[in-house]
Design a protein around this nucleic acid. Structure first.
Lengths: 291, 291
DNA sequence: TCCATAGATTAAGTGTAGCTTAATCTATCC
DNA sequence: GGATAGATTAAGCTACACTTAATCTATGGA
């Protein structure tokens, strides 16, 4: 049994359902169910009345809930105060693979130059996992792609949006984005990357029949594969440099064109929210410079 | 970061060294080092003065230690009181694979018959892992094989000992246990099972040169393999039934003969120690009946 | 009363975290 | 100035947390 189990209990209690709690925690309902079961097994007592369909906390559960809340709160306190007592201003941020090298280095450099007492740690990963870590207070904020629905307790600040494009190599000669996608093999982005999910949805929405030939982890590799003539793909416009663009056929993806939205996500009322505010400003001025 | 990390911190502080803490926690020094490093990384502060050889807690570490202690204590409280508030008398015990089916069913049956309010949960596994779980208060006690050195905070109660024997099949005709082992392939027990380690040590001590042909997880499978003529092995006497014994050559292992000791292990001053006391008594009377 | 649906559970599969092993490094002690 | 004990690091492996997919079970509507 670990803190995570108590957090699950608390979240389920607040969400009034396993499914909703799962969404809040950025895991699947099955995972929540398992965590609660483990908790019940280790304590050897029923916490929920399973005869009701969204299982409801029973008396035992209610009474434990209070104590669990207190414990988790103290635990969180421990983490935050331990950190803040030393270095004033410390920021752990997550960032999805791909945009880190293009966006963050300059931003952080100027942030640190302007506020030398601020220390930053970056962690890369996939949107969903980063979100989970923000929720668990393991990160202060995360730069993620296109979170469809955000729990009440979190907020999102848009950073930038870029259009998605269909790319295919010069040997083919499609007349439209549809044809480019349907007439060739399709090179798709990993289906558990945020952007990969978004593209999936869009494809369904447009009723496209694609022949999935490959599944890759990064947009850059998709560009490379397309260049090599192995199929067509969908990537954010920004990922295609001008030189590369000359060797590809490029169509806007979707009608109207689909965009990926890169946002900064954080918990509401984070104690370090002033800091992520600074980060956000820095990001903005950084982006302004580029255009 | 989870409770486990704070437990590591506390243990290191108490043991005054990573290595000793590792022993107390039943994990390797490397694992302790990693846990502490993770803690330091997540909090982003140094907790130890690494310029000293057994690294010593620095001021920061000292001050956190207090809070960590409090937190872990409350966490443990949560577990134990949550449990005890409902069913008076609950016992979670671990038991090494192999002896569970032979020893526990009868014992627990009569224990429960005598004290119907007592509830028992059994968990199987390897000695080392069970020990770890006892240490982490995830189990009240464990029936394990031959723990060489036990930390100060735990105690051991012998249950029974049985001699180890060398077995080989009837087609061979060795004149001694040495010959039985050295002239044939050797079928060894998994090297991370408690008994496997003990046998290893004994082999070294006797300067035996064996030709390890197989590594198996259970003593029963070793007996089966030997019957099939695939090599010789070392098993506890009790694992060889009379019928099977007729089809094997059996020698006492070692001079003097090596014994495996099965013991009940628990933390000192466990609140449920009265319960494991009951269990122990039951085990004893059970064993008495058998002889 | 029965079916349809939403939501929880379970079993099986997968990936990653956490541990181990082995090699390397570094204080302390003789 | 080695030699040793103990910590760290890297690589490998195992166990576990989470996912996926299938199943089960309350509730709400016809």
């Amino acid at each position: 049994m670990e803190i995570r189990h108590l957090q699950a209990l608390i979240t389920v209690a607040e969400a009034d359902s396993f499914a909703d709690a799962a969404e809040l925690l950025f895991i699947t309902p099955a995972a929540v169910s398992q965590q609660i079961r483990q908790l019940e097994e280790e304590l050897d007592l029923q916490l929920f009345d399973r005869s009701l369909r969204p299982p409801r906390l029973n008396t035992m559960g209610e009474s434990l809930l209070e104590r669990a809340r207190k414990l988790v709160e103290e635990f969180d306190d421990f983490k935050s105060t331990a950190t803040e007592s030393t270095i004033r201003g410390r920021l752990s941020i997550g960032s999805i693979n791909g945009i880190t090298p293009s966006l963050l280095p300059e931003t952080l450099r100027s942030l640190v130059r302007r506020y030398p007492q601020v220390r930053v740690r970056i962690e890369e990963g996939q949107s969903q996992i980063l979100m989970r870590r923000v929720m668990r207070k393991e990160l202060d904020a995360a730069i993620v792609s296109d979170v469809t629905e955000l729990p009440e307790s979190m907020e999102r600040i848009p950073i930038f949006s870029e259009p998605l494009v269909v790319i295919s190599d010069l040997t083919k000669n499609p007349q439209s984005w549809r044809e480019a996608l349907e007439a060739d093999h399709f090179i798709r982005l990993n289906r558990n990357a945020g952007l990969g999910i978004q593209i999936d949805k869009a494809l369904k929405q447009f009723h496209l029949n694609v022949d999935e030939a490959m599944e890759l982890d990064s947009t850059d590799s998709i560009v490379q594969m397309t260049l090599a003539g192995l199929g067509s793909g969908i990537v954010p416009m920004g990922r295609v440099s001008p030189e590369v663009a000359r060797n590809l056929r490029i169509f806007p993806f979707g009608e109207p064109q689909v965009h990926r939205h890169v946002v900064l996500v954080q918990r509401k009322g984070t104690s370090s929210s002033e800091l992520s505010q600074l980060l956000y400003q820095e990001l903005q001025s950084q982006l302004a410079e580029r255009t």
